[in-house]
Design a protein around this nucleic acid. Sequence first.
DNA 1: TGTGTGCAGTATGTATACACAGAGTACACG
DNA 2: CGTGTACTCTGTGTATACATACTGCACACA
Lengths: 204, 204
Amino acid sequence: MILAGEIRPGEPVYEVHYAKLLGMSRTPVREALQSLARDGYLEELPDRGCVVPTRSADDIREFFEMRQILESAAARLAAQRATDEEIARLKSLCDAYVGEGDLSRWQEIGAQFHAVIVAAARNRRLVQELASLRTQIDLSRRSVIHAGDPWREAAVDDHRAICEAIAARDEEAAYAAAERHVIHSYETTIRAWQPASLSLRKSS
Amino acid sequence: MILAGEIRPGEPVYEVHYAKLLGMSRTPVREALQSLARDGYLEELPDRGCVVPTRSADDIREFFEMRQILESAAARLAAQRATDEEIARLKSLCDAYVGEGDLSRWQEIGAQFHAVIVAAARNRRLVQELASLRTQIDLSRRSVIHAGDPWREAAVDDHRAICEAIAARDEEAAYAAAERHVIHSYETTIRAWQPASLSLRKSS
DNA sequence: TGTGTGCAGTATGTATACACAGAGTACACG
DNA sequence: CGTGTACTCTGTGTATACATACTGCACACA
């Protein structure tokens, strides 16, 4: 419901309310809320329950900084460890972009592209952390009014560069390409949000 | 109790048992267990409760890989953002090593050293993630018999190198030095555990 | 002898009742 | 008219009772 935007940032989340709404008792609702709070979808106030957190510009910066760190590391490890099948799959996903006009299908391809890379890094904790981060970022994006499609700009070129670097087993190139990709994503996001913004570290 | 080694890996953790032991009802115990499970200190089995997880060599590799990724990123950001006060504090901590013979005091200095760097990176999520990782690694170390002090070898030199790179505002040097430091830590840990081991990515 | 079914026993999942803490408000007093 | 205090109301923190699922064993049957 938070992800679907049915509960808006700043809004309090009462246990009894959602227990009634969902037809269950407070206990499982309570546990779910704690779980959500641990993952950052809710903020717990002592003795005063939960609220959906509102993200500051600094929060967004930190999220993208983490994403930059982890995605670039994933790309580097993928360049080292990806199987030939995984590389072939990355290439075919890159090619799938060109003829695609539908936005949701487009995002689906992008998600699969990233999933293959992270999986190729062979690190479960990294997979988990990036998934969490990705959801957080999507959530932050949603809590903000932005017009049009925020991606799509240089993303295809970025993806192709990452793909080629991994295929060439060039760890540093894959690292740098992934870094650039996250920077682009950050810039489009923050531009759609507010003019003044902090910048991430540029790739050298 | 898990950290203190009072509950050993593989051992089941029953709600009622610890409720009685701690003089509370099942509810808060249950919530605590879920909290611990979310942080990786316990493994939850469906309808069968919790056990303290046993770590495989692959788990250790993944932990250190993550630590390498995050610590090096933290060092790079610290080189960019640390205040002069923080740099001075790093230097004094480095100097504090030399005259120190006591192991626990020595570890305390090391922990402070890392804390200053991570704080200087100005990213709360990074702080949190590294703290969690660090505890996990300590826990994994403890679940294993190892003789003597596993650190101390090249750690002082490593710390000094990191400190100098940050003081010089050299981001890439700080990054590489932190990477090397984690590799050393991994190697001593895995050597104390079992001879055959996977290796982390070497710093280029 | 092997396999499948049924029956406890135990521990978790859920519901509910009660206790407590915090916020807001009304009222009394200076 | 301002300030402090007590009261109430709301919602969370905790305890306990009941329901359910899984495991192991025993027993019957092929």
